[in-house]
Amino acid sequence: MQGVTDVLLCGTGGQGILLASEVLCGAAQLAGLDVKKSEVHGMAQRGGSVTSHVRFGGKVWSPLIEEGCADLLLAMEKLEALRWSHFLKKTGKALICDLEIMPMTVSTGQAQYPDVEKGLRERGVDFVMIPATQEAFALGDSRVINTILTGAASAYLTLGTDVWMEALRRRVPPKALEVNVRAFERGRQLAGV
């Protein structure tokens, strides 16, 4: 549908994907746009592969992004970026946290953790690796990886800084706001734009 921006967030259960997608939705809504978002809860969240579909624009019908149509893939974990890369359109962009979390199939020796950068390059996916683990550590809070990635995403989306800040203010607990604002700004700088 014309005028709709599709952002697929992915990672593993417990990485703060819901917060990141809520901030993204909030920013779009504050910009006066129609918004839909979809994810699943329950068993899928127990450390499994998790996605959140965010769509915003003039009028949004489907809560799910169609494969091959996402403008942006926001991956909190490297392997998950590769797993969900087929949702990107040819001209789409993947922003990927450099974090590697071993799935149980790898921990138990049934499978090998793949070379994600090589895989993405071979497939021709346009991507930027964000050193978010190191940056989160420098900011003193390992939990802000999601906000660093959100900041990076903001550089590729046409939403004003004011709506991002307001969405963060409304979604992040007050005592964690300052570190999240700094994480957001650092992410925006690292986006490679």
């Binding site: 969240q45 087929h86 990107l88 149980m104 790898v106």
Partner: peptide, 13 residues
């Protein structure tokens, strides 16, 4: 755009 990649499964645990 891109064919689905063959990657290790990440079942919940």
């Amino acid at each position: 755009s891109f064919a689905p990649a063959e990657v290790p499964l990440r079942p919940p645990a």
